[in-house]
């Protein structure tokens, strides 16, 4: 018996932007996706394929025009669904976090969500501090900074902190790592893995960075031209030939490209190494074995 809890279920979702105008664009033509509690799922696919449109359905920013979206026990097709209640449990960070910062001061911006939850002042402050430190923003140094004067990566960290401070059960991140420096990426990946392990956080992330997908995702969905075209673990996904992946805008991690090239040159190595660690072990074995 399957004891896992299905927390997100998307069935045959169709969505047209600017419907009934001359600029109508059918962004989703039939997407299917399911996510189990505690899972990290990556959504990949080419520019303009419908990824952002899809994830904006998951916290009720967009409503299904056709098909079905269920998140936790909320049916997003129901016009009377309590979206505010949903958003307390499902946090979303936009592709452009600048668009998400609307308070003057960093501290207020991160505190915005927790304040809505009706927490005490002390609790709000504690959560803000914790969330800021978690994304690598020194609380004292940044809380009184003006949000619009921050660098790109600093703004993204503030947007992430604001959503983390809500302590959502499900976290939806649209390109969370774009704009972060390498140490910031490592820190965020470690943090998300920890929250997943310790708090059972469920994670949906849109990402173009295959190296990060490999480190973070349990499963991947590829959306191309408004449809789910592939699903599987990162290893299954990147086992497809590079030419097939390229059709969907994807490239294998450069480590795997290296292994492909070596195997093509007759070096006896497994092709499907995804990370530096795996490749180093494999090569050490192959080269020592001679």
């Amino acid at each position: 018996m399957d004891t896992r809890e299905l927390v997100i279920e998307v069935r045959d979702l169709v969505y047209t932007h600017l419907r009934d105008t001359p600029f109508a664009v059918q962004a989703l033509k039939g997407v299917d996706m399911e996510v189990w509690r505690g899972e990290a799922v990556a959504v990949l696919g080419p520019t303009g394929s419908g990824k952002s449109t899809l994830v904006q359905h998951l916290n009720g920013l967009l409503r299904p025009q056709h098909g079905r979206v269920r998140v936790l026990d909320y049916d997003l097709s129901d016009p009377n669904v309590d979206v505010r209640a949903l958003r307390r449990r499902v946090g979303l960070v936009f592709q452009f976090p600048e668009a998400q910062l609307f308070e003057r001061y960093v501290g207020d911006d991160v505190a915005f969500g927790p304040r809505q939850l009706g927490l005490s002042r002390e609790e709000v402050r504690a959560r803000v501090r914790e969330a800021m430190e978690a994304v690598g923003l020194d609380f004292e140094g940044f809380k009184d900074r003006l949000t619009f004067t921050l660098s790109g990566g600093e703004q993204r960290r503030v947007a992430l902190a604001g959503v983390l401070a809500l302590r959502p059960e499900i976290l939806i991140l649209d390109e969370p790592l774009a704009g972060l420096d390498p140490a910031g990426r490592r820190r965020l990946i470690a943090l998300l893995r920890r929250l997943k392990g310790e708090r059972g956080l469920t994670l949906v992330l849109v990402s173009h960075d295959v190296d990060d997908v490999v480190l973070l995702a349990d499963r991947c969905f590829v959306v191309a031209d408004g449809r789910t075209v592939m699903a599987g673990t990162p290893r299954e996904l990147f086992s497809h030939p590079p030419a097939t992946l390229a059709e969907f805008g994807l490239r294998p991690p450069s480590i795997m490209t290296t292994m492909h090239a070596l195997a093509d040159r007759g070096i006896p190595v497994r092709r499907h190494c995804l990370t530096v660690d795996e490749a180093a072990d494999e090569l050490a074995r192959a080269l020592e074995g001679g």
């Binding site: 696919g45 080419p46 520019t47 390109e175 173009h208 295959v210 390229a246 805008g249 994807l250 490239r251």
Partner: peptide
């Protein structure tokens, strides 16, 4: 200035 950060890997290439 990070002008291709949001492109898919093939598009960025």
């Amino acid at each position: 200035d990070e002008a291709t950060a949001l492109l898919d890997p093939i598009g960025r290439r």
